[in-house]
Design a protein around this nucleic acid. Structure first.
Length: 760
DNA sequence: GATGCTTACGTTTTT
DNA sequence: CGTAAGCATC
């Protein structure tokens, strides 16, 4: 089986179309063509996983431009991630021209909203230099609000307020319109917290993620001239992943599409996985009501996966009651069996799947980049990463501890934000004493109180330290120095490129110098991360025609983890199931298929959330093109506590004939289980039975020519150089050795995959 | 005001 | 287990 067949090669076009021969319709099936050719009026496309919807969307846009003479700047394409927008433009560049592809409006709801508010926000008193507050910024504001309102943080979790505020905004419920549900002190406090939080956002010239959407809706609703301008601008609207749209986004679309009604939405109710973020599957099902004249198309032919994989996916998602019945079909081969594997614990799980991957690379000519490991929670990546690092196998990870969430990066960004938007007191408070300039909590409190008393921002209060009561003379001096430094940077900001500004900030604050004094490992990596910021700004300046500070900060606030995933790197990809939406891989491994983990324990007892877990599983399975591995453990350590785990209920819905036979409890297995690394030998034999490629018996092949190593042997590793064997483990393919290298590193090396020379 | 120690607490999923 | 916030001490 070819490793990276493109869908284009196995698409078969219907023969009977009058437009046959048009390059934009080439290789499309009949339904896909209809979607491309549909001219004016609403269009709803149910597009199953792997049914070529991105192709349909890009070809449809290309057709509008090339054949119908629609100006690219009159087309608005909403994608789910920035990455998807970028890819769409790249593909369009090849279909029409790069210049025209660049001119279309493509982006996420959030980035488009930010752009519109930057352009028109002044109509509704959104300042031009607004910042976008992320989760942790929001929490700061909530905490401040709770303190101000004398609400006990211990009794009422700040997160709970934030979640409920977010929910309210998604549904476009203002503090005034909000009505308290019955009972509970929480709701008694809620309105005042909501109001104060909103007030603080305004004072800081900041919008949160939800504001981007709700303020845009408010803009469209309250300013008819803006609405008209935008209705004329966005003559053709195309929306991807419509099943994950929330109410505010829905309102925004309705307003924009009202005049011309050229709205084309694509989605799949089986792939709705953002309920927690306000996504409402009901909206895609309501589209027909909203637009009774809509053309409705269904893309049900799958070009991605084998029949076995599709059947497994269907067997899971069809358990749900609230879904539009549909079943994908494919002309693809049946494919090999799915492999379900139980490991003793998360370490062994990681070890097993790493081995599987290396086996396939070795015997089936796979590349590391053919593999994706998916999991339910980010925390699961730790065991995987440890194992990959130990065995020196390249991997790339989406999410987890994000670059922009690191303390040092946030600090540097806070300086940039403060220079850009002085009213941003969250940033100000963050860095006013970083690096330490002897400005302590008492002084900060004094500024805050004084600012509140006179109704100005902290930054404004700082300009007149003499009128702040309770400041010691020395503190006053320090504060003046700080204010002067920031003012200088503010004066420069418009004449400098972002990279230069970053340099000036580091120079005048001494931030990097302070970090470099710390010689510890963390200290070094912090300094490294700050220097990495220069790559970020330089890359930004290269990629953007108008690389302003405003757009830099905006882009950083709105990047998704997935946006920076580099598909070209030769490495295994690891990410959450959520992040994997829209992607595909020849081989997919879903790890942690356990009850209470996936489906997640928090979804138990909530039928809506349980159905979402099933959809999430469906999304995960349908990422796979050729092979699927599902692993679970019998015991897993969570929160530092070891607990028993049982196989996920998803597994029992997969028909027996689709996966590998259960491994027999042979004495061999039991013996093996006693040895240190559970190599799970019988299972491995079965794995290879269903491969078409000739199997090289793994544990026989090289054993003869491989030297045997014992503790104390001196060896030479092709990458790490000279070392000494500290200990050995495992048998055959699984044998590994702990080796101490000359550079002090101690690593576990899988002997099977490393050319290790014995030295005299 | 800085530093170091203790404790409490948490993990869904993300624009 | 690992982190972050909180407290006591210098």
């Amino acid at each position: 089986m070819p490793n990276n067949h493109d869908v284009t090669h196995i698409c078969h076009a219907a023969e009977d179309d009058k437009n046959i021969g048009h390059p934009l319709l080439d290789g499309l099936n009949a339904v896909q063509r209809e979607a491309v050719l549909h001219h004016e009026g609403p269009l709803l496309i149910f597009a199953g996983a792997g049914s070529g919807k991105t192709r349909v969307l890009t070809h449809r846009i290309a057709y509008l431009i090339a054949e119908r003479g629609i100006a690219p700047w009159n087309i608005f394409a909403v994608t789910f991630t920035n990455k998807a927008a970028k890819e769409m433009k790249e593909r369009l560049g090849k279909l029409v021209s790069e210049r025209r592809a660049k001119a279309i409006w493509a982006g996420t709801f959030h980035s488009t909203s930010a752009r519109l508010l930057r352009e028109f926000g002044e109509n509704i008193d959104v300042p031009r230099n607004f910042l976008i507050y992320d989760d942790s910024d929001q929490l700061h504001l909530i905490r401040d609000s709770l303190r101000e309102l004398n609400i006990d943080e211990q009794k009422f979790a700040p997160r709970a307020f934030l979640a409920h505020i977010s929910e309210s905004k998604e549904k476009m419920v203002s503090p005034a319109a909000w009505t308290a549900p019955k009972g509970g002190q929480f709701y008694g406090h809620f309105r005042s917290v909501y109001i104060l939080y909103q007030e603080k956002l305004r004072q800081n010239s900041a919008l949160d993620f939800d504001d981007l959407l709700s303020e845009t809706v408010r803009l469209l609703e309250t300013c008819p001239h803006v609405l008209k301008t935008l209705q004329d601008r966005f003559q053709y609207i195309l929306v991807d992943e419509y099943q994950d749209v929330n109410y505010a986004q829905y309102r925004m679309l309705s307003l924009l599409a009202k005049k011309r009604r050229n709205i084309c939405v694509v989605g799949d109710d089986d792939q709705s996985i953002y309920l927690f973020r306000g996504a409402d599957v009901g909206l895609i099902l309501k589209f027909e009501e909203d637009y009774p004249d809509a053309l409705i198309l269904k893309l049900e032919q799958n070009y991605r996966s084998t029949q076995n994989i599709l059947e497994a996916a269907y067997s899971v998602v069809s358990q749900n009651s609230k879904r539009k019945e549909k079943k994908l079909w494919t002309e693809n081969p049946q494919g090999g069996l799915i492999v379900i594997h139980e490991a003793a614990n998360e370490k062994e799980e990681a070890h097993w799947l790493l081995q599987r991957i290396l086996d396939e690379v070795r015997y089936k000519d796979r590349k590391l980049s053919d593999f994706a490991i998916l999991y339910r929670t980010n925390a699961q990546s730790r065991a995987l990463e440890d194992m990959f690092r130990n065995f020196v196998t390249p991997y790339k990870i989406v999410g987890g501890m994000r670059f922009y969430e690191r303390r040092e990066v946030k600090d540097v960004l806070a300086y940039m934000r403060l220079v850009h938007t002085p009213t941003d007191s969250v940033s100000l408070k963050r860095i006013i004493n970083v690096p330490a300039r002897s400005i302590g909590a008492t002084s900060i409190k004094a500024i805050e109180d004084s600012a509140r008393a006179s109704g100005v921002s902290m930054w404004e209060a700082l300009q007149q330290t003499h009128s702040i009561p309770g400041l010691l003379p020395r503190a006053r001096l320090r504060l003046n120095d700080f204010a002067l430094m920031i003012r200088k940077l503010q004066e420069e900001k418009d004449h400098l490129r972002v990279t230069e500004l970053l340099q000036h900030i580091l120079d005048s604050t001494g931030y990097l110098d302070a970090l470099e004094l710390d010689k510890s490992i963390e200290g070094r990596s912090r300094a490294e991360n700050v220097r990495e910021m220069f790559s970020v700004t330089q890359e930004f300046e290269k990629q953007n025609e108008l690389p302003t500070l405003t757009s830099f900060l905006e882009q950083i606030s709105l990047v998704a983890d997935i946006d920076s995933l580099d598909v070209d790197t030769e490495a295994v990809t690891m990410m959450t199931l959520h992040s994997s939406k829209g992607l595909e891989f020849p081989v997919v491994i879903i790890a942690g298929m356990e009850q209470n983990l996936f489906p997640h324990v928090r979804s138990h007892g909530n039928p809506y959330e349980m159905e979402e877990e099933y959809r999430l599983c469906y999304v995960g399975i349908t990422r796979a093109k050729e092979e699927l591995f599902l692993t679970h453990t019998s015991r897993r350590t969570m929160f530092g506590m070891l607990s028993n785990s049982s196989p996920s209920e998803f597994l029992k819905h997969i028909p027996r004939h689709l996966y590998n036979p259960p491994r027999g409890k042979s004495t061999r297995t039991e013996k093996r289980a006693l040895s240190s690394f559970d190599p799970d030998e019988p299972d491995q034999d079965q794995v290879f039975q269903w491969h078409e490629s000739p199997k090289v018996p793994a544990n026989v092949s090289n054993e003869a020519e491989k030297p045997v190593f014992t503790v104390g042997d001196k060896v030479k590793h092709p990458v790490f150089g000279k070392g000494v064997i500290l200990s050995t483990e495992g048998i055959g393919v699984n044998s590994s050795a702990k080796i101490a290298f000359a550079n002090q590193d101690i690593k576990n090396i899988l002997l099977e995959y490393t050319k290790l020379d014995k030295m005299p």
